[in-house]
Structure formats: structure tokens, C-alpha cells
Design a protein around this nucleic acid. Structure first.
Lengths: 234, 234
DNA sequence: AAGTGGTCTAGACCACCGC
DNA sequence: CGGTGGTCTAGACCACTTC
């Protein structure tokens, strides 16, 4: 399975765009076909990727131009805590506070698309970055045919699911601001009442099957949520 | 300018998917070409849109299937406060607290890609939903050749910019949790120290030109930030 | 009028799935 | 093996910008 041609073309164009100044024009699509020896559709598909990354922009009747690099390419991606921290240059670690099984509450069952009372695996983990507590996370996992009790809860859950054929693809999140209660404040080494971000996430496979419900409390003084959004909806 | 054919096909397929159950298969691409009298590329382009919206998913060698509808299609879009509230079934209003011009601070200048001290228009607005204060917003606008002082600050700034040829396309946001200070708490009718969301946004045109810097404080007890994100980066 | 991106066609071959 | 989606070609015409 070699890389498709349009990705190679995208790489090449990405390199060229890097050598140009903002708002400089790239060669026209027809010129690129000849230079690179590919069809126009392949050129267009490559450019389409760069447009989505915010690297170039197109103007009908005029041309394709290098975008101003200020926005960077920090597109919104579904990432794990581990990836997230590593991207910030921090070393992530995890302390497991508790594990176990329970019957799903009405709320959790609704969000996971299962019946209330159905068995779910519950996991509470403290997430640290460079040894400092950053977040407290409570995860609910449906059975999925996985023996969660025998899985090391300190490792990546996504990797475990992937090994069993469940590939996460999409997540719906709600971000809220909350004041820390006594217990959570203590776990995060914060003052009671300090502001924190509560992120509630339901993760889905490509087919829309919910495979994880997670509620995470992030320290407000150490964590911010960065995202780039665009006007169209795809 | 009629709607392109692939959008009509996407509409038709969207209708059909609605009549099917989750995980039912759509007709194959080759069958759809014949049924709809279009080429395969047009069919694929239509399906591509539906995949991005999370409505269907494709499995190579197998087929195209209706996704489980639980995720909804609430994709992340760049919206205004007005659109946002209306989507939640609330009536948005705005109170302008102050307007004026000033020299850009180093931080604001950096983010807007202008020189420190360069003139920016500053606008502070209280945003209400059904009469209840929801957010306090401080906006910094670069000149852009627009006479901001003569613009009604209670209306949509994006609409004003669009009228002058500046189309917003993308925004970078940082979401943080903060405890309300005395002044802001008073404006939002909240207790001092209550948790709130601080959203700092820089808005860009498609070409990457910054056209707005906004810092908005949302009441934590009345506002949550919903978003759907996917694994790939485009 | 010439050149650009936007849409669309009619083919082809490849990689993968399920029988 | 046949059928599926994934990639790719070589054309064509349209809508738009620029001169």
C-alpha cells in the first residue's frame, strides 16, 4: 500500500508554498499537471487538502495563493490526553484512582446507546503533565466484547479498542466552566472554588457507535482549549 | 448560478438515507450513476459530503452504509453569538457598553498582525439571551478601511465586514476557565468568583488576514460549548 | 479575449471484502 | 471470483477574473 499520488503532489506543493511569501500565486492547475505529469483531478485533489489545512486559498478566475501563515495549521483533531500533552512539550503520566463495573445510569445509558442498568466499566484516572496534576477523568465504557477488567487502565484506551477492531473516529464534546468542589480540588491540588474546565465527551466509531463516555475536569490555571474552526460545515 | 449537480445528488442521497435504518447499505456507486444519470465522480463527490457530515460511512470492498444517527450533524461551524443563541431557541439582544479608538497593545497588535500603537477600534458589548446577561465581550478591530465609528455597534460586525469585502472564513479560539472578578461578575449578574468561560478568538479571512480580536466571558452556569471533532485533520 | 478555478463525463485499473 | 470503494486519466464546458 504505497501512498496515493495526490498525497505526494500535496507534499510537493506544500514544500513549494513554504518557499513562497504570503499571497504569492502557485502555478495554475494546468501548468502543474504538465510539470508533475499527473492529471488535473489529481492536482485539484492535492490542492483541496492544502486548502482544508489552511495553507493556500483559491480564487475563481484568478488563481491559487499562499495563505498568511498566522493561523498556523493547528486544525481541530480528535486527540488523546497523551498526544495533547506531548504536543505541548510536556510528559504525560497517569495515576489510576479506581476501576470497577457498575450498572449504567439513565444518563450514561442514553449517551452510550445502551439500556439503563446494563454493565459498564468505570475508570477514574488522574492525569499529570511533568508530574503536576492536570485533570481528573471519569470514563464509562460499554462492554464491546472487551474484558476491560484485564486491561491495564494506565494505557491508551483507544489503542485497546483499536486492537479489538473498534476505531474511534469522531467525538461530541461539551465544554463548561465549573467551580471545583472539595474532593476534586484536593485531587488537582487546587483551592476549593477555583475555576476549572469540565469536558464531557462521547466518542464514536465511523459508523456512529458510541464506545466511550468521559467526563474530565481540567485545572483552569494550567489548561486551555485551543481550536480552529471554519465557516463552512463541510 | 444554479446549484451544482453533486449537491442535488447529495440532497437526494440524504433523503434516502433518512428512510433507511442505521447500518443499512446504500446502492453501490455504479448503481447510483445509472439511477441518477450522472457520472461516478459526481456520485462520489456527493457521498463525500455526507461522510463529512457523519451521515454515512464507507467500507472499501463492502459498501456505503447509513451511520447511527446518535452523533447528530452538529458539526463545528464558525458562528456569531446571534446564530448561536437562535440555534438554542433563545432571543439574542445586545447592549453596547462603550466604543472608541485606541492604540493597539503589543499583545493585540501581534495577534492582529499590525504594529503596536496602530489605531484599533474597541467595542465592549453585553450579550443577552431572552433578556438574561449571557456574555461580556470586548472586541478589537483593525482599521480595514472601514469607518468603524459610524457603524452601529449593536449589529453584526461580520455583516459589516462582508459589505466591505472582508469575508470571515476561519477563527482560532482559546477556551479557558476563569473566576469572575468583581466588575465582570456585576455586569453578568453573577457572584464574584463564579466560574466562567473565557473565549479568546482571532478571526481571519480565507487568505489568512486577521480582521477581529474578541475576548468574551460567558456565564458558566448558562453557557456550554458544544463541538464535534473527528480524527483526521483533513 | 485569454487564463483561471469549478464542474462534469466516460472510461480505466487497483485494493479489498465476501462468498 | 464478482462486486465494492479508492485512485487516476484525458478530455470537455462553464463561471469568473483580468486585461
Amino acid at each position: 500500500m504505497t501512498r496515493p499520488k495526490y498525497e505526494l503532489v500535496a507534499d510537493e506543493l506544500s514544500r513549494r508554498a513554504g518557499d513562497l511569501a504570503a499571497h504569492d500565486a502557485l502555478p495554475s492547475e494546468r501548468e502543474l499537471m504538465q510539470q508533475l505529469g499527473v492529471s488535473r483531478m489529481t492536482v485539484r485533489r492535492a490542492i483541496e487538502q492544502l486548502v482544508r489545512r489552511g495553507l493556500v486559498y483559491q480564487v475563481q478566475g484568478s488563481g491559487t495563493f499562499v495563505a498568511d501563515p498566522a493561523v498556523v495549521t493547528k486544525t481541530l483533531r480528535l486527540t488523546s490526553f497523551t498526544e495533547d500533552m506531548e504536543q505541548r512539550g510536556l510528559t504525560p503520566t497517569t495515576t489510576v484512582r479506581s476501576t470497577g463495573s457498575t450498572g449504567a445510569s439513565a444518563e450514561i445509558a442514553r449517551r452510550l446507546g445502551i439500556e439503563p442498568g446494563e454493565e459498564v466499566f468505570v475508570l477514574e484516572r488522574l492525569r499529570l503533565a511533568d508530574g503536576t496534576p492536570m485533570a481528573l477523568e471519569r470514563v464509562h465504557l460499554p462492554a464491546l466484547g472487551i474484558d476491560w477488567a484485564s486491561v491495564d487502565p494506565g494505557t491508551s484506551l483507544y489503542a485497546q479498542m483499536a486492537a479489538e477492531g473498534w476505531t474511534v473516529e469522531r467525538a461530541a464534546q461539551t465544554i463548561e466552566a465549573v467551580n471545583l468542589d472539595r474532593e476534586t480540588a484536593h485531587a488537582l491540588d487546587q483551592a476549593v472554588g477555583a475555576a476549572a474546565l469540565r469536558v464531557t465527551r462521547v466518542t464514536y466509531t465511523e459508523a456512529g457507535r458510541p464506545v466511550e463516555h468521559a467526563m474530565t475536569i481540567y485545572r483552569g490555571d494550567r489548561y486551555g482549549y485551543d481550536l480552529v474552526i471554519s465557516r463552512d460545515a463541510g
